[in-house]
Amino acid sequence: MITHPTAPELIDSVIRFIEERAAPQLKDRDAFLCRVAVNALAAVRREIEQGPAAEDAAAERLRALLGRDGDFATLNAALCDGIQAGTIAPLDPAVLAHMKASIIDQVRIDQPQYSGLRTLTQGS
């Protein structure tokens, strides 16, 4: 329904306003919180663009892993329950592969500069 401006465009405009106009007026703790706020907006922007595909892919992997149907939240909870109860081994290669793909997608949204992301993607 909405064609423009897109949500990412609106977020970019707000980030630009904060960085160019608002941030220079702030100091000390407010300046720090302002940087955190910009980081939060940037994460929201990445989540809008990458989040749906990441969740679809995770749900698809979970269906194959657990051999049953369901939405992401249900299947993710089932995986957690199984690991907690000891019925799913934490080092099972298929479990590890799912968790690895999921966490790479999530850190690409949350903190794409984090050095641990490079470590894990280069190590494989």
């Binding site: 980081n39 968790m99 641990g116």
Partner: peptide, 18 residues
Amino acid sequence: MIGRRTSECEIDLMALLE
């Protein structure tokens, strides 16, 4: 936003589990 840093710990844990 600190709630979005849990995933940093998780990616570090993932490397150690692997």
